[in-house]
């Protein structure tokens, strides 16, 4: 009994440590005061202010565009990588695809910057951000798709062939529908990673294009305004929705099998 209580306290403190700062941001985004100091009263005016802030809207539009395009491309490429890893069991293949997942973001950011500028002599902007985001998302999609495939019974594909399906029809009618939850989960995961990525975007954005996280960063350099709290709250809500959807669609990737 005593031990149970101790465990509960420990667990609650950890959760408090994780979630209290987030709760504070959400709370103060509704605070009717310019200062993040004391609670004055409830308001939604910071959200209204956000909607009239052209720079902010442009940054949000950029972030959404980048997230949608990069996660679409990453899902297609990552699914192919996942399929290949599952089918051919070549160890270095898995290693190559998964390394970007484990690589420190700063390293990936710097190396992409050098690659774009020194090797390709590309002007940084939307394209470079897109390529960067696709690069780090592929690995995640590949992991999720491979986990999904590993949970499938191989004899299903033999059964399809046996019952008269060509390899292409086996893919279309059996493999693809069974991969679908993994693909959706991978897409949502990439979307989440892309929309709130700061480090890699910071190195590959150049001067012209700003995303939401970059915009937030540039704002808090001056002061943490309630407007920052409001945009952070929105971003948080979007991210949580995506993660929630992903875990519903492919529980085995986020919760472990069973």
């Amino acid at each position: 009994m005593k031990r149970g209580v101790g465990l509960w306290i420990a667990a609650l403190s950890v959760y408090a440590f994780l979630y209290v700062p987030l709760a504070v941001v959400v709370l103060f985004s509704f605070n009717d005061s310019e200062l993040n100091a004391e609670w004055v009263g409830f308001t939604t005016r910071w959200y209204a202010k956000l909607l009239s802030d052209q720079t902010m809207l442009q940054a949000a539009a950029n972030s959404l565009f980048i997230a949608i395009v990069s996660s679409t491309v990453a899902t297609v490429l990552g699914a192919m990588a996942g399929l290949a890893m599952h089918r051919y069991k070549v160890r270095w293949l898995a290693f190559l695809a998964l390394t970007p997942v484990a690589m420190p973001e700063i390293l990936l950011g710097v190396s992409l910057l050098l690659f774009f500028r020194q090797v390709l002599d590309l002007t940084l902007g939307l394209v470079s951000i897109l390529v960067a985001h696709i690069t780090f998302s592929i690995g995640f999609v590949a992991i999720i798709v491979r986990a999904r495939l590993a949970g499938l019974d191989e004899s299903l594909f033999e059964a399809a062939r046996d019952l008269g399906a060509t390899p292409w029809m086996t893919f279309r009618r059996v493999l693809f529908p069974l991969m679908m939850p993994g693909l959706l989960a991978g897409y949502l995961m990439s979307f989440t990673l892309s929309i709130d990525d700061f480090v890699i975007t910071f190195f590959t954005a150049g001067v012209g294009v700003t995303t939401l996280p970059l915009q937030i960063y540039s704002m808090i350099k001056v002061a943490v305004t309630p407007e920052v709290n409001a945009v952070s709250t929105l971003l948080m809500a979007l991210t949580l929705t995506m993660i929630g959807l992903a875990s519903r669609l492919a529980p085995e990737t986020l919760r472990g099998k069973g």
Binding site: D153, S155, R161
Partner: peptide, 20 residues
């Protein structure tokens, strides 16, 4: 002759029913 062109069908040990 590939499996899909053979006029034979198999009942698998674990049935291999398409779950979807």
């Amino acid at each position: 002759v590939p499996p899909e062109k053979r006029p034979l069908h198999t009942v698998f040990q674990n049935y291999a029913l398409f779950p979807h």
